[in-house]
Design a protein around this nucleic acid. Structure first.
Lengths: 147, 147
DNA sequence: TATCTTTGCATCGTGAACGATTTAATTTGA
DNA sequence: TCAAATTAAATCGTTCACGATGCAAAGATA
């Protein structure tokens, strides 16, 4: 038995599990809005800046077009966004919020605080949270640049 | 614009992204063994203790039967495990390694060190890593008990 | 200008995730 | 003892992820 192959020694398994469980925790908050977590991420990107290219959203969420495109197509059929072909560069696709997509921002504004409140019983200290953010950012930065 | 809805303020997005990117980093190491990351997790559980129930694996990986069962079915058709109906309790399914599944452990033994080496350029300090593990464990423990 | 390469996005196939439901076996308790 | 409740897995449908590939538009180069 190789001790390095023990599950308890794997940081990645912890990340994988924590990520899934937190996404599940979002569900009851997102379901009333008819959103999945990745769709909520797309909306957050567009709420910050409307009218972005698929490539902009792709870079921001670190997801390729083969994930983003079907996601956007579903969101379009839900009436949350519209996709229009670029005028200058006809290869590009511009994604814009619909009235409905814009309106959802108001309904979503309390979600982050709800999540924070839901975590109040296990909240890492301010210092732990900062270390967590810093560590994750350095992992992401490193792995993103690896392509 | 609600600042709490900014992507950069979201810890969950970081977890989600880091988890995906690390899983991708495993791919070149797992592909030669014909494994996906979740399949590798199942094998790690069985390498620690062979002959476990679906419910045991389910608890250990924090995944429900609706995820685990198809995963095990694929692994069975790959000849990595066998699934046998429980004798005492016929509702249960016992999962056991095949000779091939056992043999893979030897081929996989260097993967953790390979991953560590691949991360040498962005390795968080020993202290950061410990805080990361501790924080993730407390999040997981809290969310797991929420059902 | 012709063609060669690159880019931006879409499509396809496979394997997870997961809520909801189903099925069969076991346990409970009146 | 026998119907009702519970449990262990499996099944189903939808939505991601993602490698591989396709395709058309734009850019580079001869």
């Amino acid at each position: 038995m190789y001790s390095q192959l023990k599950l308890d020694n794997q940081i990645c398994f912890r990340l994988y599990t924590a990520s899934r469980l937190i996404t599940q925790a979002y569900r009851p908050l997102l379901e009333p809005l008819g959103l999945t977590y990745p769709q909520y991420l797309v909306l957050m990107v567009l709420w910050e800046n409307d009218h972005q290219l698929v490539s902009d959203i792709s870079k921001r969420l670190v997801l390729e077009s083969n994930t983003i495109t079907p996601l956007l197509q579903r969101m379009e059929s839900e009436g949350l966004v519209v996709r229009t072909k670029g005028t200058a560069d006809k290869r590009q696709t511009l994604v814009s919020l619909t009235r409905k997509g814009i309106a959802l921002q108001d309904q979503a504004k309390d979600i982050p605080d709800c999540m924070t409140a839901a975590f109040s019983d296990c909240t890492p200290s301010q210092e732990e949270a900062m270390v967590l953010v810093h560590t994750l950012d350095s992992i992401i930065k490193y792995l993103k640049n690896n392509d």
